[in-house]
Amino acid sequence: MSVRSDKIHAILTQAFQPSSLQVEDESWKHAGHAGAKESGGGHFVVHITAAAFSGKSRIACHRMINHTLKGEFGEVIHALSIHAKSA
């Protein structure tokens, strides 16, 4: 965990009340590559299970998560890998 992944974890918890949630900071894997340097944001992987995703398409689930984290793209998030399930 890192301060940034804690922040993402807190935002997603509040928005979706997930039954399970894991946020991994994988920034170290990508340190120094061009895009990451430019925005300053890190690479994160989210595994989330929440009833809110029930009956939603994959794109819809990703959009819900992306919209929730909109303010974090750039400074905090450069790349976000999402694995969302409803149960």
Partner: peptide, 24 residues
Amino acid sequence: ADWPTIPQLYIKGEFVGGCDIVNE
């Protein structure tokens, strides 16, 4: 696309998804 990241794949004019969805 109302989608914050790249890459983005489109098939027949429809947005299919980014890296995670394409992998899946």
